[in-house]
Structures are given as structure tokens and as C-alpha cells.
């Protein structure tokens, strides 16, 4: 690089005026055989990414991501479970010497030691040897950790009541009684067009669990609200009463 006097710049900027030729670097003296990342390596490597992406998408399409019922902090009977990659830590707390009076061993000491050792591995295993067989302590400790993680996860999975877990998290579906007088009025008065055949909503909002009193609903049916125009309801007062009570009684959960 040019240094000192005689350097030329673009305008008053700090960009050197002298253009560098855009030629690849020379790798020929690097240790081992190498090839250029762009495009040689990338043209082969994208295939790995594609295969992986296809598997990933198949998984996504085949298994819909789970959604249980809405969180209810008052439900004390719910058996909690963390996501699967935390199961081994959770399981650890179920053993006698990692729970109760010894809970610190399970929550702080063991995970802390493991994570600390992992973080400081380069200074704990300082020898120049890289082959796993030539550094037996590091290799066996890692294998031990690996086996423990797999064992604890396994134990956690087999001891969990998955059927009960699925049952306790199920969203409560609202049963719409389509034989009810109120539903028939709902259908006849064309409410169904905007609020859907299960009252789930459409261009209008859902009518399940509105929290409104029958009188308020009757008023909305007559006078409209928001973007809902007035005089949508054209039936008798008797029908209006049936409709508004039917909707008011649709509880969420």
C-alpha cells in the first residue's frame, strides 16, 4: 500500500483515487487443498441447504404447530412441562439429591459446572492433541454429559402422562346448538352472512362470548354498531328476544 506523501484521493474524501484490480486472492500457499467459496463451493453447498429445507417444510406441513387453550393462571391442576430441550434440566430436579433441601445442586451447581466447563473447555483441555482418542478425559467427560442428557430427557418423556397432558391443554370448543330457536332467527335474519354459521365471525366480529347483556345485543341488532348498519333486524320482538338471549348465552369456554 502506498504510504505518506503523494497519495491521491477521490475529491475531498478518504477513498484512494487509485483503483485496485478486482482479482481473486492467492490461496495456493494455504495449508491443505482449498477451493474458492464463490462460486465453486457454493454451487455444491446449496444442495445440502435445499435437501434440508425440503425436510423442514415437510415437517412444518405434516405437524401443525400446537396451540393449547388460552392461559388460565387460576388452573392449579395443570401439569407444566417445558419445551423438549429443557426436559433434561427439569428431570434433574426430580431426583432426591437435586431437589428439596438440595435443590441448589439441581438448579445451579450442576448446570453451572457443566456450562462453565463447556465455556472454558479450551483452557481445561490445553494439550495440542486434537484426536478424540488422544484426549481421553475431555472425550469421556463429554460422552458422559451426552449420555446423561439423553437419559434424563428419556426419563422425563416416559414418565410424563402425555394423554393427560393433551387432554388438559385442549381448547374448549363452543357447541353451537343449531336447533335452538335463537339460531333459526340468527339464520333467517341474515346475521349469518357477516357473523358466520358458527358465530365465529366473518366480515363482522365473532359473537361468541361477547360479554353483553341480551338488551344490549337487541339494541345492536336494531340500531347497528361501528360498521354494522342499523335496521339489520326485521323480525318480531319475540324473535329479537330469542336471538339476543341466544347470543348472550354463548359463553367462551
Amino acid at each position: 500500500m502506498h504510504r505518506g506523501k503523494g497519495m491521491k484521493f477521490v475529491g475531498d474524501s478518504r477513498i484512494p483515487a487509485e483503483r485496485k484490480p478486482n482479482i481473486p486472492k492467492d490461496y495456493s500457499e494455504y495449508p491443505g487443498k482449498t477451493e474458492a467459496f464463490w462460486p465453486n463451493f457454493l454451487l455444491k453447498e446449496w444442495m445440502v441447504g435445499s435437501v434440508f429445507l425440503i425436510g423442514y417444510l415437510i415437517l412444518t406441513v405434516v405437524h401443525e404447530s400446537p396451540l393449547e387453550r388460552k392461559a388460565d393462571p387460576t388452573d392449579a391442576s395443570y401439569i407444566p412441562l417445558p419445551d423438549w430441550y429443557f426436559l433434561f434440566l427439569y428431570q434433574l430436579l426430580k431426583y432426591k439429591y437435586a431437589a428439596g433441601d438440595y435443590t441448589l445442586i439441581g438448579t445451579v451447581v450442576m448446570p453451572g459446572l457443566a456450562f462453565g466447563a463447556l465455556l472454558l473447555a479450551p483452557w481445561l483441555d490445553r494439550g495440542p492433541e486434537r484426536r478424540p482418542k488422544k484426549r481421553p478425559v475431555a472425550t469421556s467427560l463429554m460422552l458422559l454429559a451426552l449420555i446423561s442428557i439423553i437419559f434424563l430427557t428419556w426419563e422425563s418423556v416416559v414418565n410424563h402422562d402425555w394423554e393427560k397432558a393433551e387432554e388438559q391443554g385442549k381448547p374448549v370448543e363452543v357447541e353451537i346448538d343449531k336447533q335452538a330457536e335463537g339460531y333459526k332467527v340468527y339464520q333467517e335474519q341474515t346475521c349469518i352472512g357477516c357473523h358466520g354459521n358458527n358465530l365465529q365471525g366473518g366480515s363482522g366480529p365473532s359473537l361468541i362470548g361477547t360479554g353483553l347483556a341480551p338488551e344490549e345485543i337487541a339494541k345492536i341488532a336494531k340500531e347497528g354498531v361501528g360498521s354494522m348498519p342499523a335496521d339489520q333486524f326485521k323480525g318480531s320482538d319475540e324473535q329479537l328476544k330469542q336471538l339476543s338471549e341466544f347470543i348472550a348465552n354463548l359463553e367462551k369456554k
Binding site: K25, Y27, G32, K33, T34, E35, A36, F37, W38, K44
Partner: peptide
């Protein structure tokens, strides 16, 4: 973008 990749990391 211009860097080399050692042959021993390439599954090809």
C-alpha cells in the same frame, strides 16, 4: 465473498 474453503469440509 472471496475466500477459500478447504476441500476436507466439502461433502462432495
Amino acid at each position: 465473498a472471496d475466500h477459500e474453503v478447504p476441500e476436507h469440509v466439502n461433502p462432495a
